[in-house]
């Protein structure tokens, strides 16, 4: 196997040389070295160097949300949206009900009427219960016409449970969260 477990460091980086120098000098007096190492707090100083290295302002990693809104990924699965055709502004949804069938939580209800002239189903209502949604993306995968889509909006909080049940209008317009930044 891999030999006894001591440190699992792959390389001895030059940054670690402080204790290595002492090791070289004191190699014939291991016990004395251990005592000195303990006395000089070398083990703790090694760690402290890592801590101080991370103090530089260029190393700041924290996102300043909500002052700065993070850019989420293109494929992010956030608030659902019902897309309209960009030119005609008519809904793309063909009321096929595939999203409602695909949904594990049964939270999509599609209402439609059959147009006697064209003999096609036309969308009337669309209800999406966000309070039970787990954003698995199965509904948008099922949609054959890219009408239903999970978007990059992620601020979905609501003061009421009813506020999380989105109707067709809400789904087409998208959420309007309070913005604390431009």
């Amino acid at each position: 196997m891999m030999g006894p477990l001591r440190s699992t460091r792959k390389t001895d980086s030059p940054r670690l040389s402080l204790s290595r120098v002492f090791l070289g000098v004191w190699s014939r007096a291991g016990a004395a070295f251990a005592l000195l190492k303990k006395f000089l707090l070398l083990d703790l100083l090694e760690g402290l160097r890592v801590t101080f290295k991370a103090q530089h302002p260029s190393k700041i990693y924290t996102e300043q949300y909500p002052a700065e809104r993070p850019a989420v990924a293109e494929r992010y699965r956030g608030a659902p949206r019902l897309n309209n055709h960009p030119e005609t502004n008519q809904t793309l949804c063909i009321a096929c009900d595939l999203c409602a069938i695909a949904c594990p939580e049964n939270l999509i209800v599609v209402g439609s009427v059959r147009n006697p002239a064209t003999r096609r189903k036309e969308l009337t209502t669309f209800t999406y219960d966000l309070s039970r949604c787990m954003f698995c993306g199965l509904c948008e995968d099922a949609c054959p016409v890219d009408a239903l889509e999970l978007t990059q909006d992620f601020e979905l909080a609501s003061y009421t449970r009813e506020g999380l049940i989105w109707d067709r209008q809400m789904l087409e317009e998208g959420p309007r969260p309070v913005r604390y930044s431009s």
């Binding site: 049964n106 939270l107 999509i108 209800v109 209502t125 209800t127 219960d129 009813e162 506020g163 049940i165 109707d167 067709r168």
Partner: peptide, 11 residues
């Protein structure tokens, strides 16, 4: 706000 969707009884 629209009505609460009815849950299908799973088979």
């Amino acid at each position: 706000m629209s009505e609460v969707p009815t849950a299908h009884t799973p088979k």
